[in-house]
Each structure stands twice: as C-alpha cells, then as structure tokens.
C-alpha cells in the first residue's frame, strides 16, 4: 500500500512538472474550448426572445458549467497510446513493474491540475463582465457535481482507452474515437441542455452514456434540477463495465500480437 502511494505520488509529480513546461500550449487548448460560450450567446438570446422553458440566465449558467465540465474531463489517451504503439515506446513500459495505463492516468490527472488556474481566471473574468450570472451551488450539490465530473472523466477515459487498444491492429485507432466523439458532441448536452431536445430523443439518449458525461455534471454544477439521478448512475455503471470488459479483452489479445518497431 505504502509503495503504491509512493509510486502514485512520484508519477503525479513528474507529469505535473512535465505539463507545466507546456503551459502556453495548455492555455491554448483551454481557449479552444470556446464553443460553450458561442452556444451560450445563441441560447441566451433565443430564450430572451421566445419562451424556451428556461430563463436566459439559466442558459448562461448551464453553458458556463459545460465549459468547466469539458475542461475537467478532457481525455486524449487514444492519441498517446497510438503514438506509443506505432513508435515502439510501449515496449520499455511493458517491462516496468507497473501497468502502462497508470502512466496515462497520471499524465491526465497532472494536466488537470495545471489547467485549474487558467480555468479559474477565465471564470473570474466572465463574472466580472457578467455579474448577473454569479451563483454559488449548495455545498451538497457542489459535492455531487464534483463526484459527477469525476465519474464523467473516468467514463471518458475508460471508453477512449478501450478504443485505444485498436492501435494493436490499425495505425489509426483514433478514427473510431472520432466517430464516438461526434456522437458525444451532439448527444451529451454539449450543444444544448437536454430539455431542449424533442422528448423521444431525450428519452433515448438517457440510455446512452453521453448525457452523464456533460449534461448531468453541468446541471448539478449550475445548481439546476436533474431528473432521475439513480437511473443515470446505473446506466453509467453498465456502460462502464461493458467498456472495461472490452478493453480487457482487446488488451490481452492485442498484446499477444504486438510486435513493436525495433522490438
């Protein structure tokens, strides 16, 4: 136990330092997450002119929360893993007394912490420009929102890592991830809160993993009511298990056929 903790601390320290080297790049990445603000403007204006069932300020808070959720749940493991497989970097890592996945997890977690100051600053500027949107969620909801974000991050990581395993067979595993990401963009609540969806579509999406990756955490963070949290949790758990099993199968069969460059 103590050794595991030490390993974790070391890995995190290293990846955090690595990420701090690339601060400028990170800030640009964060800046490229501008889409929620674009949609915020559109929806707030729409709700101001036609009744949409949600007042404009709720849209503003929702999309600000979407921005935060996106920033805190970014995952890119498929590109890293693919690179490591194609270039043979995976081979030395297989010799370490540590499953390679933890290195990727650590780099994601380390990056997350280096991103926080920037995201906080951006939110500060936002509230200065638009003080009407200021809100503080109740401590209980906030805790729940943080938990939901953590679950969303884990889910995205597990799913993407499963797709990353395809790198053992093809050089472009990320093409599959791209397809999945397109579904995520349109079904997760990233483009609009699910209340705006036609009822039938909304019902259907609740059985996919997507709403729990953006919509539910963002709603909680914005302090707005979320329907049927328990069902959501069960759906997420089910999908998580499916992808975890898939990843395990692909990892085992893939590793057997893996012959790296220069190995």
């Amino acid at each position: 136990m103590k050794r595991t903790l030490r390993k974790a601390r070391l890995l995190l320290g290293v990846t955090y330092a690595e990420m701090m080297e690339y601060r400028a790049e990170l800030y640009l990445w964060a800046l490229s997450g501008i889409m929620p603000f674009i949609l915020m403007g559109l929806w707030a204006k729409a709700a101001g002119e036609t009744p949409m069932g949600m007042p404009p300020v709720d849209f503003v808070r929702y999309f600000l929360a979407v921005f935060v959720v996106r920033q805190m749940t970014m995952v890119w493991v498929v590109w890293d893993f693919e690179y490591d497989v194609v270039n043979g970097q995976l081979s030395p890592r297989l010799l370490h007394p540590l499953n390679p996945v933890w290195r990727y997890v650590a780099s994601h977690v380390g990056e997350r912490f280096s991103r926080i100051p920037f995201v906080t600053a951006l939110m500060g500027i936002f509230f200065l420009l638009y003080p009407k949107a200021w809100w503080v969620p109740a401590p209980g909801t906030l805790a729940l929102a943080i938990l939901a974000m953590l679950v969303a991050f884990i889910m995205r990581f597990v799913m993407q890592y499963a797709f990353a395993m395809l790198a053992f067979w093809t050089e472009r595993a990320n093409a599959i991830e791209d397809l999945w990401f397109t579904l995520y963009l349109f079904l997760s609540g990233y483009i609009a809160p699910l209340e705006m969806f036609p009822p039938a579509v909304r019902e259907a999406t609740l059985y996919t993993p997507f709403p729990y990756l953006v919509y539910v955490p963002a709603k909680l963070l914005a302090g707005q009511p979320v329907p049927a949290l328990t069902t959501g949790f069960l759906v997420t758990l089910a999908w998580g298990l499916v992808f975890l099993a898939l990843q395990q199968v692909l990892w085992r069969t893939g590793l057997r056929r893996y012959s790296a460059m220069g190995a």
């Binding site: 036609t50 599959i176 483009i191 036609p198």
Partner: peptide, 28 residues
C-alpha cells in the same frame, strides 16, 4: 480511414442539422 471519415462527416452533418433544429423547434 476514408470510409470512416466519410461516415463521421455524415454523422456530424446530421448532428449539426439536429442542433440547428433545436432552435427552431419552439417556433423561434
């Protein structure tokens, strides 16, 4: 890859049209 990219473009187009439709659904 090209086939996958085409599928993705088609999916993205459907999604964009869906996203646009959400604004018009309520008569806005």
């Amino acid at each position: 890859n090209f086939i996958l990219a085409t599928t993705n473009s088609l999916l993205a187009l459907a999604g964009s049209i869906f996203g646009l439709h959400l604004f018009f659904r309520t008569g806005y």
